[in-house]
Simulated assay, not measured.
Amino acid sequence: MTRTLLVCGTILAGGASAAAAADCEVTLRSADTHPNGYPTVEAVRWMGEQVKEKSQGRICVEVFPASELGEEKDAIEQTQFGVIDMVRASFGPFNNLVPETQIVSLPYIFRSAEHMHHVMDGPIGEQIAQGFAQHDLVVLGYYDGGARSFYNSKHPIKSVDDLKGMKFRVMQSDVFVDMMSALGANATPMPYGEVYSSIQTGVIDGAENNQPSYDTSGHAEVAKFYTLDEHLIMPEVLAVSKISWDKLSPEDQALLKEVGAASVPVMRELWNAKVAESEAAVEEGGAEIVRDIDKQPFIDAMAPVYEKYVSTPEAKELVEKIRATE
């Protein structure tokens, strides 16, 4: 008997993907906010190919990009309830749900992307995965969210003073809101899909994100000034619903874990190539990238953010562990 883990309780009618899914005993539906071709989307597709091959066609992964299954926050909630089987999401929306994600979402907590990889691929990553498990999400791996930087439609940002009074979209996270306040700017939490029109109409002056997102979202068209302040090097998570997970056999669970972990270096290789491609594309399109910037004043401005979120012994211990990781 064919067993399909369904999205919204229905099988999509028609089309090649629906026909392919019908050939599988189990079809896992995976949500992503990014478009086709984006490293996270393609890494999960690669994972799906591996799962199908290694399960001899029994298990399929069907990826829904470009927020087809809802914006990030909604997709996360649907995955927790088992309506969606898998989700790739940034740590930002989890900050108010999984306390450990707040610490690794702090500005300038990571020295580099390599430092972040070493932290998330080791015992600290395992500790954070336990936090996700308490909210019915099984971590398959940690992807790259790149280095997030500021961009806007008004003027180049070369110092902290250039941010004063400006309105920036941030993810729906208290850490992000407090970060903007510490820099003298105004935070406007909103879904990713609303950013383009909000900049275009002047509801906000800009946003902050990595270079591939700045490029593929079209935000470079309406916000021409991008500053490489790299205030956040934030991990992302690929997770499966506990409800969907519990329907799998132990052998299939082990396979999903194995292939999920194997997709991480694939994603990171795709990511590095995409960063270089996006940087060239936005400059060719007329965006101005500010590279020569003194980050120390930005780092110094984060003191009240750390004071607020690193106040418990557990949080202080986690920060020390991260900083001690080579």
Rank of each mutant, 00 (worst) to 15 (best):
I124C: 01
M86N: 05
M86G: 05
V87M: 04
N95C: 14
S90D: 09
L106C: 11
I103M: 00
E126F: 02
K73Q: 12
V104K: 02
N96H: 12
H115R: 05
P107G: 06
I76L: 04
S105L: 06
S112R: 09
Q127V: 07
A129I: 00
D74V: 15
V98R: 01
T79K: 01
S105K: 04
Q127M: 09
V104C: 02
S90L: 08
G122V: 13
R111S: 15
A113I: 14
I124D: 02
A89R: 07
G125L: 00
H118C: 06
F94W: 12
E114W: 13
V87K: 04
G82H: 12
A75E: 05
F91L: 08
N95M: 11
G92Y: 11
G125N: 06
D121T: 13
V87Q: 04
S112K: 10
Q78S: 14
E114G: 15
M116T: 05
F110N: 00
V104W: 02
G82R: 13
Q102G: 13
P99Y: 09
A89Q: 05
E126K: 06
T79E: 00
N95S: 14
I124E: 02
D74T: 15
I103R: 04
D85R: 09
M120Q: 03
D85M: 07
T101Q: 08
S112W: 07
V104Q: 02
D74L: 14
V119P: 03
K73N: 10
I128D: 01
R88S: 13
V83D: 04
Q127E: 05
A113D: 06
V119A: 00
F91Q: 07
F110A: 03
I103N: 01
G125Y: 08
F94L: 00
Q78V: 10
F91Y: 14
F94G: 02
R88Y: 14
F81Q: 15
M116I: 05
L97E: 00
Q127S: 11
I84G: 11
A129Q: 01
V87G: 02
T79V: 03
V98K: 01
D74I: 15
H115Y: 12
V98W: 00
E126D: 01
P123R: 13
V119T: 09
I109P: 04
V104Y: 04
K73M: 10
V98S: 03
H118V: 06
K73F: 13
E126R: 05
T79P: 03
D85F: 07
E114A: 15
S105V: 09
G122C: 12
L97N: 02
I103D: 01
M120S: 03
N96D: 12
N95V: 13
E100C: 10
Q78T: 13
D85L: 04
M86P: 11
A113T: 14
A113K: 15
K73S: 10
D85N: 11
D85I: 08
Q130W: 05
G92M: 07
G92Q: 08
Q127W: 09
G82E: 06
N96E: 11
S90W: 12
M116L: 08
Q102I: 11
G122S: 15
M86T: 09
S112G: 10
R111H: 14
S90R: 12
A129W: 02
I128K: 03
H117R: 14
T79M: 01
H118I: 01
A89K: 10
Q80E: 03
